[in-house]
């Protein structure tokens, strides 16, 4: 589904190299976790996949279900089924949460050649899915993410994911700033979406989210590269010993 080959990325403004040859393959139906110390390039990878400005790809390629991802605009990537749950969801005063969701759903349907969803159908679907994530009607009415607590913002990201039904879900430190209950809710939302046709890339700093979202593969990212890959055992190892061992290994 997702194929990243030898990806090198520089930060535009500082002329600094962040990703230094990332190779990663995610199959449909699988959950991949990426762990790694701060500054290893995890979030950069998620932004580059989603198409954010400010990064220059100097080498390598990324394809999503056969399409060259890097040549697409952010909205085209979204229409192709890529979804990024932001680490810091953006607050947009003046844009209602519901308005935003409906605009996004219909924009993607249009891009795929589907007809727009009727207002009633959309409302029914959103209410139902919001309920599962314990998002109340008030949160749907308020301006997008404005005044939301950390947990509310993350649940709202998952709600968008559930409604937009993407092919590849990237979760960028979705667990940061969440208490145990909120994390369970988020994990339930993700688990409910797991199926044979969908791939996941879960970026996290800690192992605890992986207790709730069981990964098939765990990668450790160090200094802009995948330093080590393994099973969920690898995440437990990191939890026990920190990154020191792996850092030492890769330094050799």
């Amino acid at each position: 589904m997702l194929d990243i080959k030898n990806l090198h990325v520089d930060l535009e403004e500082e002329d600094k190299s962040i990703l230094k040859g990332v190779d990663l393959h995610v199959d449909a139906g699988r959950v991949h976790a990426i762990m790694g110390p701060n500054g290893s390039g995890k979030s950069t990878l998620s932004y580059v996949l989603a198409g954010r400005d400010g990064y220059t790809v100097t080498q390598g390629s990324v394809s999503l279900r056969g399409d060259d991802l890097l040549s697409l605009e952010p909205e085209e990537r979204a229409a192709k089924g890529l979804f990024l749950a932001f680490q810091y969801p953006v607050e947009i005063p003046g844009v209602g949460n519901m308005t935003f969701l409906r605009t996004a759903v219909n924009a993607q349907r249009k891009a795929r050649g589907d007809s727009e969803m009727s207002a009633t159908d959309f409302l029914r679907m959103t209410r139902e899915k919001a309920k599962q994530l314990q998002i109340d009607a008030d949160m749907l009415k308020r301006p997008l993410n404005v005044g939301f607590s950390g947990g509310e913002k993350k649940r709202n990201e998952i709600l968008q994911m559930v409604i937009l039904e993407p092919r590849l879900c990237i979760l960028d430190e979705t667990d940061s700033g969440l208490d145990v209950d909120a994390m369970k809710l988020v994990a339930e939302g993700v688990n409910a979406l797991r199926d044979d046709g969908r791939g996941f890339l879960v970026i996290t700093h800690y192992q605890r989210l992986l207790d709730h979202i069981k990964p098939d593969v765990v990668h450790i990212m160090v200094d802009g590269r995948i330093a080590k890959s393994g099973t969920s055992e690898l995440a437990l190892e990191v939890e026990r010993n920190g990154y020191a061992d792996i850092l030492a290994e890769t330094a050799l």
Partner: peptide, 13 residues
Amino acid sequence: GELFYLRARGIEQ
């Protein structure tokens, strides 16, 4: 940042 967030959800520029 706001513009990117909307585009990442599939809304064209």
